[in-house]
Amino acid sequence: MTQPAEVHTSLFVTCIVDQLYPQVGVSVVNVLRRHGVKLDFPSDQTCCGQPLFNSGYTQLARQLGKRVIDSFSLSDYVVVPSGSCAAMLKVFYRELFSGDPDYGEKAEQLAGKVFEFSEFLVKVLGIEDAGACFPATATYHSSCHLLREMEVRQEPLLLLEKVEGLELRPLPQAETCCGFGGTFSVKYPHISEGMMEDKIANVLATGADTLISCDMSCLMHIGGGMSRQGQPVRVRHIAEILEGQEETGGAGNG
């Protein structure tokens, strides 16, 4: 299906994807375009302000929030390849700007337009089978903000279940935080690492070779730990899985 030309769908790529994992952004673009989405990328976008917000710097977070709200004021949809950053735009801005004579209303408007990537595919585009092929044995980690702020539980799993060649194994204690928590991970590294070790043990218990998530921040944390431990498990953003095609996926029977 193709969206009408007058529908403006914008990508909010997130800092971590922009600077550290640009290939994930490319996958997001490719998947969305393959499904007929006309995508734009407001180039003055930067950080959503969540690190400041979570550290208590509410006033500074508002400064960045206003930029984001303005950057996406003309968009009909804002797609975010991260449950956490999407929650900032959709949920926390409303609180940050609640009662603000100018930005209160704008934040409300933005909230109605923001979708996490997998949520956008399922809820807006109505896609459950993205036509992808990705031969792997995988398990899925749901980020806390995606689950509890965005309330996106089933969408990523619906999409992953339809991926050809992908064997999805349930992750024990799937809804327990991995311990990243943004600044938490450097403020209390010992606690964060302890939580990470539990998460890694659960990932390893599945026997999966690939860990999938909708949030690169969790994957940077869990993947960084697994890499340090020498564990042979790769981490992938869900967009990278959904981008997989038979000819690029490597395996496949054709």
Partner: peptide
């Protein structure tokens, strides 16, 4: 504090915004 127990990725050669401008 991060790298004590976790590997940290380096900044990508080209950021997404560069790739967008260059190709996408």
């Amino acid at each position: 504090r991060w790298t004590a127990a976790r590997d940290m990725p380096t900044l990508a050669g080209r950021s997404f915004r560069q790739i967008w401008a260059d190709e996408l």
